[in-house]
Write a protein that binds this DNA or RNA. Structure first.
Lengths: 232, 232
DNA sequence: CAGGATCCGATTAGATACTG
DNA sequence: CAGTATCTAATCGGATCCTG
């Protein structure tokens, strides 16, 4: 990769943003992750060595500052980097409207759960610790079961049963949950169609849809008919 | 390159836009070029075979439609492609504010003149044919001299003297003209500093700054001090 | 004008292993 | 936890030449 040899601002920006994975790393930083491992959880399929390299590049280009925090290194967006939030927003808004539908390979449960964990509305969840169990269909056995430990101060993701009881359990094909996450169908639609099932007290069941803020792009308006085959 | 394996809209968009040169090709299409050679003049350092390949990809992804026009093939943005104008705008606005300063390699006179030719204000130029000669310093001999033939109906770029007389001549270092183009200094600043010199009738001289609309990003507001070294 | 085909060199990204 | 180092296979892009 590299340079374009153009004075055009679009070209100069592209020289930075074009690089594979760079836009997604920036998305993570814009989202608020600052620690290496947190950033990596947002781009799990990126090798750690490449992530390291990209972060260094971003520091060199003045978009990111690396700080030695009390608990280890932190990566913070500089003013130049912060302004890329606009870019992420516009690209994401386009990206949910137009590109073709998702392949199975795009449906990564680890990523979904990680996303869910950081879009919890602390004011909506119960005041005391609540464990939400998740079971996805259509995935490998290791990716089937997840737990979210919800507390107003912090939310944790577990790949194994945390052990102190599950208050509510949710079971659904992965693509249905992703569809909900992307705003392509509502919680209730999924329940009514039988694709999504809860197990647990009905007060909790009814409350779940308020707990999660969904994808930041879920509310982007969709084109009337963007698919030749008529699918929405 | 290729896929990211993420359902995130930013990732899905990046799979398309990430590709080297793709953003610049889209910029050309957004700008209004439809013919292969016209598009290529906007990305002269891209090989024609790669441009062909990229255009085919864009057609396959539904961003571009290829039509057989009366005068040959035409590439037109689909609705999905047209919406990328927002993306180009935001990226370019960022790109003129933040990335470091231009290297000599970024200063391509052919590109500048091509850009100038399509940002002429037809209402501002003289009603009858006017030939503007340009001489750049700091470039190879072949890139030194250019002519713009301005007519209200059409503007032509020539690498050789078109032969019917030059009404006004402009001489300046290339980087100065690029600076003007990018809105980093004014025409009058350049004249006063002695970097830019006109030869020709003073009525034309005074009118030139109104003829060109400059880069679409020339008017983007700049950060107070984006350079550690204090340069603007 | 509008490309397609081919070849080859340069990069790059992924995998793996290792460190403080 | 937070990376770095190394190696290799794949790919990508540019240059060149060719076609209708």
């Amino acid at each position: 990769m590299g340079e374009y040899g153009q004075f055009c601002p679009v070209a100069k920006a592209a020289e930075v943003l074009d690089q594979r994975w760079t836009l997604l790393v920036i998305r993570e930083l814009v989202t608020g992750s600052t620690r290496f491992n947190d950033i990596h959880r947002g781009v799990p399929r990126m090798s750690r060595s490449l992530l390291s390299k990209r972060l260094n590049s971003l520091v060199g280009e003045g978009l990111v500052e690396r700080r030695e925090g009390d608990h280890g290194p932190e990566y913070i967006l500089t003013p130049a980097g912060q302004e890329l939030e606009q870019v992420i927003e516009v690209i994401g808004s386009w990206g949910i409207r137009w590109p073709g539908h998702l392949s199975d390979h795009d449906l990564d449960p680890a990523l979904l759960v990680w996303d869910m964990h950081r879009r919890v509305d602390p004011d909506a969840i119960p005041p005391r610790r609540t464990v939400l169990g998740l079971t996805f269909h259509g995935v490998t056995p290791e990716e089937r079961d997840w737990w979210l430990v919800l507390e107003p101060e912090a939310v944790d993701v577990c790949e194994h049963d945390p052990g102190f009881g599950t208050d509510l359990h949710l079971e659904t094909p992965l693509h249905t949950m992703v569809g909900i996450w992307r705003g392509e169908l509502g919680w209730n639609d999924a329940v009514r169609s039988g694709d999504l099932r809860f197990e647990g007290p009905s007060t909790l069941r009814r409350a779940v849809p308020t707990w999660f803020l969904l994808s930041p792009f879920a509310t982007v308006e969709r084109p009337p008919a963007n698919r030749p085959d008529g699918r929405t």
